[in-house]
């Protein structure tokens, strides 16, 4: 009925846990950190980025596989994982902007991490533009795969390296914690017991959606070859 379903069920259970215990878990309120209850966004905003990075990683693996052994299936996997990753990246940006609006006063304050994430997603948008602009299927797949490798290696400087070189509104940053994403002082073990299941649950949902897209594409290809 529903194919290889245990991890889909796991995703559902983990996200149910996240969306209930995520609201119940006691949160710390350390002095000088005016996060209050918004720290609970950690269970929803941060997993979007994890999901995005997992999708982009799977995407580049299939692009490299395509370059080693050109096959339509590899290309479909690379493209659909990149699309799903971009959807989650955009969700990450939007949730971050909502949070920033109430935490930093402005939805977009030119924070290095915000800018970096936006640039990274624009680079992936260019991947879809590039694919859409080519008519020939094999050329589309080959050039797309080469570009996807480039995009992946731009993603990591944009969201991991460059934001660490300057001060960031995100917790951490240069000179304070060195980890511009999570501040160990803001979280507790109880919060981590929600954060990691949340990241896993959202990532599994992300992969589920990507596999659905891939299966539809494969069905369409099968239909085209039959005709």
């Amino acid at each position: 009925m529903i194919r290889k379903s245990w991890w889909k069920l796991l995703s559902f259970v983990l996200l149910l846990y996240t969306c209930t215990y995520g609201f119940l878990v006691p949160v710390p309120s350390p002095a000088g950190v005016p996060l209050q209850e918004t720290i609970r966004n950690l269970f929803f905003h941060f997993p979007m980025w994890i999901g995005m990075m997992v999708c982009y990683t799977v995407s580049i693996v299939y692009s490299v596989r395509f370059l080693r052994k050109p096959s339509l299936v590899n290309d479909i996997y690379a493209k659909e994982y990149a699309i799903t990753g971009t959807v989650f990246g955009v969700l990450g940006l939007i949730t971050g902007m909502i949070w920033a609006n109430y935490q930093w006063g402005k939805a977009w304050s030119g924070d290095p991490k915000q800018n970096g994430a936006a640039i990274a997603i624009l680079i992936y948008f260019a991947y879809f533009v590039l694919r859409g602009s080519l008519q020939d299927e094999s050329k589309k797949a080959r050039i797309g795969a080469v570009y996807n490798v480039f995009a992946y290696f731009m993603l990591f400087p944009c969201i991991w390296i460059l934001p660490r070189l300057t001060e960031s509104l995100h917790p951490g940053g240069r000179g304070t914690e060195g980890n511009p994403g999570l501040n160990p002082k803001d979280t507790t073990n109880a919060m981590r017991s929600v954060m990691y299941p949340a990241a896993l649950g959202w990532t599994l949902l992300c992969v589920w959606i990507a596999t659905l897209r891939i299966r539809v594409q494969l069905l369409q290809e099968k239909k085209l070859t039959h005709e």
Binding site: I2, K8, C19, L205, L212
Partner: peptide, 19 residues
């Protein structure tokens, strides 16, 4: 929770249709 359960029902039904 309502959004989450609705989302999962939707994804599940898509999965069944594709299957």
């Amino acid at each position: 929770l309502a959004i989450l359960i609705g989302l999962f029902i939707y994804v599940y039904s898509l999965d069944r249709k594709i299957s």
